[in-house]
Design a protein around this nucleic acid. Structure first.
Lengths: 350, 350
DNA sequence: CTGAAAGCGCTTACAG
DNA sequence: CTGAAAGCGCTTACAG
């Protein structure tokens, strides 16, 4: 079935009536509507999106911009797909489709976004992998494109909506927990880039130290990339120290795989010889030996929240979502593993 | 800048000329073209996609359909993002955009595809996660939507284009390698679903056994899901056996994380107590201890090949890509790790 | 409740 | 080399 015109001719009625019947407008005869829906179903008619978008001035499609890094890093493994699921759930309530726009490795994220927005393929955007200073915020604000962000930024205005994980809080709590376990020399690993989470993670770390009356020692901050290789490098550096830290916080759980290996190679045991707490629960961390102590959250709920925040930004749905918070720092719950045993167990591990 | 009409008025020329200048048509005065391009640049004009698509009958957008499983499973970790990069590289040569369409958990992939195709948002599709019997092939063939597939299927016709990994070949070679290392009781893990790769992997396994003169023993085939938890379950079952296999092939490298843990918990050493070869190289496998022996391929090249195959299916570009193969079984190269030590080293590991 | 008509923004034969 | 006009498929005031 080609178009609405053919469908209308087949039914011997006007395209306008077909359109109204299909779009659930009130003023259509019940029997007419039934005939139209039945014919559309049997003939497999689905409205051409381009015609619809052009006429309505909107596409009913939401774009989620992902960077190559957010897919390849440890974050990919189950986090993003589940966030996306939650997002789709929230949007599908209003028949909005979600498409994923993957910024190529090498392409500047800002240019990429500009292109996508200018083409008007999507009515609204979800952005992620925010940076401290992120030009996408002023750009989207200026372009008048509704959006929400997974991640904070200094560039966000009071009108912008975002959800972010409580990186600060978990770093603080991890330090306090390690302190209670008897640790006095607690290190931290964080990425050496301008991603927002690095700053937050370190802020929380410092705050935790302060609470415990420990001094901040810049030598205990290990800058490394948030993946296996980065964790391996951190492990190597720690092993080489005269005066090793007895515990470490990792900002990404995939780092632990490399850290475990470096310790294993050196005949040391992660957990016993270095207590480890990592940022986010994942299947890998759950099956490492020792099992990783980490922080849990519900990524689907994060996605649903993002979806609702986005809907609150769309004129067509704003009134239905007026009670949605404007920003949300998502709490995370500690999941006790085996990688930060309390002092009395530290020698008896395995 | 709103539309082409405003741009034309600003330049005091017709919209037709603006359009021709912008689209690089030959018969435009050089100076006119320069003025148009400059004005478009400074005023930030980009053509409205809906208008373009409607008029041209095509969107210059390619859809990549991903299933939730393909993102969440181990396959996600670096494989898909890199394939996507290669795909985008190939398509960007002709200014074709790629959008990712993620089939929700729970939504039937066939219905999802039907909806996407009917809406005509994309000109062509890339599908993945093929099954033995996959209705998407006849559907796309019937709908006349050009497509390529990452993965074989019995449902593919001779006209369909696909790239698939050489699951059969690697399973066969892995068995032969393990046989040469002295193993006579070689197990295999494969998913218990109708994904195409399960069948191929088992076919190769059987062929390898036959080459080595070993009997096929169904008790050595462990059906399990292709992730950490699945690998853990396989490990548990092996440990419980009176007469354990001395080696195993895993169809997914993420399984090894769980398998390693189950062995570690039982005081056994992966590698020494069970030789392991897994399907695909990944950062996790590289940093496990012992390092995983596995098979390597270049996912970017796979993506580029898929892109070229797809272009060969599009009328506008077919003649430029007439030399692209119609199907390709992608070879993989063994990467020697520490998880399948030759016999003389098996006792001295670690 | 339905039909006829306009028009969304673009590209492209066609005429000159 | 450029302009005027048609039309892609749809939705939606408007008239009846």
């Amino acid at each position: 079935m080609k178009g609405i015109r053919q469908l209308a001719e087949h039914l011997q009625i006007s395209t306008g009536t077909v359109s109204r019947a299909l779009n659930g407008k009130a003023d259509v005869n019940a029997e007419t509507r039934r005939r139209v829906l039945e014919a559309a179903e049997t003939l497999g008619y689905v409205p051409n999106q381009a015609g619809r978008s052009l006429r309505q001035g909107r596409s009913r499609t939401i774009g989620l911009m992902l960077s190559h890094d957010s897919m390849v890093g440890g974050a990919s493994d189950t986090f993003f797909p589940l966030v996306i699921n939650g997002l789709q759930e929230a949007l599908s309530v209003h028949s909005l489709d979600l498409i994923l726009l993957l910024c190529q490795r090498g392409e500047a994220p800002d240019d990429f976004l500009r292109r996508m927005v200018a083409q008007r393929i999507v009515d609204a955007m979800v952005i992620s992998s925010t940076r401290l200073d992120d030009p996408r915020f002023p750009f989207l604000n200026k372009a008048g494109m509704p959006f929400v962000s997974l991640g904070r930024s200094h560039s966000a205005t009071a009108d912008n909506r975002w959800v972010d994980l409580d990186f600060e809080g978990i770093a603080e709590r991890a330090v306090e927990r390690l302190y209670q376990h008897g640790h006095r020399k607690i290190a931290v690993a964080a990425p050496d880039t301008d991603v927002q989470l690095a700053e937050l993670f370190l802020d929380g770390y410092r705050r935790g130290l302060a609470h415990c009356g420990l001094d901040y020692d810049p030598d205990l901050v290990f800058r490394a990339e948030a993946h296996e290789q980065g964790g391996y490098a951190v492990g190597q550096r720690i092993i080489g120290l005269r005066n090793r830290p007895t515990a470490i916080l990792l900002n990404a759980e995939m780092m632990s795989v490399g850290l475990y290996r470096s310790f294993g190679e050196a005949g040391l045991q992660p957990g016993r010889d270095l207590a480890i707490i990592a940022e986010r629960e994942s299947p890998v961390g759950r099956f490492l030996l020792p099992r990783l102590t980490c922080f849990r959250l519900d990524p689907i709920a994060v996605g649903q929240m993002l979806g609702k925040m986005l809907l609150s930004q769309l004129p067509a749905f704003a009134d239905l979502y007026s009670d949605v918070p404007t920003t949300k720092i998502w709490p995370m719950e500690l999941v006790e593993g085996e990688s930060d045993p309390p002092p009395e167990k530290q020698s008896g591990l395995l």
